[in-house]
Amino acid sequence: MTNEDPDKKTTLAGDEGREGPVQEGAEKPVADEPGAERAGDESRVAGAPQEHEELRDEHGHRYLSPEAINAWRISGGLGSIVYWLIPLGYGALSMGGDMWPEWLAYVLGVIFLAYTILEGTVIPWIRWKRWRYHVDRNEIDLRRGLFIVTRTLIPIKRVQHVDTRQGPVYRQFGLASVAVTTAGDTHEIPALSEPVADDLRRTISEYARIAREDL
């Protein structure tokens, strides 16, 4: 799946103005935690994931798979169609009585249509640009958010289990999410390419195991 159109992905990554992402990605982790990344590298040789999945920012924090943008365009666009029920329902109501002004139905219709268009175009792109994750021996660091920018720290010690998840759209794009569960909540790192997701799941559960043994 992911092999098919590398050009497109490169341009998407290029928009970010990232210089030499591959090399940068290769250096950083070695400084961070050599052992684990080496193990990861081996599996990468076997699984042969794409280079662009190693996109990192200036702090060495990783981006999601650029495939995420297109996957989200489809899932978000389709998902937002559900909300059309609101203007449609209101429209049906407003036809019934004069208590409900009819113009509001059109306004709502335009708003929700615009929302679907945005979800199908620019929102996934911004979301992808904003998403950053970093995992080391001590903690998981997530940065994300379109309107609400959120940074979350999850100590590895608190991780109870890790799973990968894949819906129908993600499957089409060869993507998967990694869900990290603590005793209090679940955090999802969405839209990673399948080998990266598997790798990450293994890494996190390994770290969690070590952290538990240390305790």
């Binding site: 609400i148 940074r151 999850i154 100590p155 209090g184």
Partner: peptide, 14 residues
């Protein structure tokens, strides 16, 4: 005892 900690900022807050 804290399982995770988040710092959030929406557009207005930023």
């Amino acid at each position: 005892r804290v399982q995770s900690l988040s710092v959030l900022a929406n557009w207005f807050q930023r």
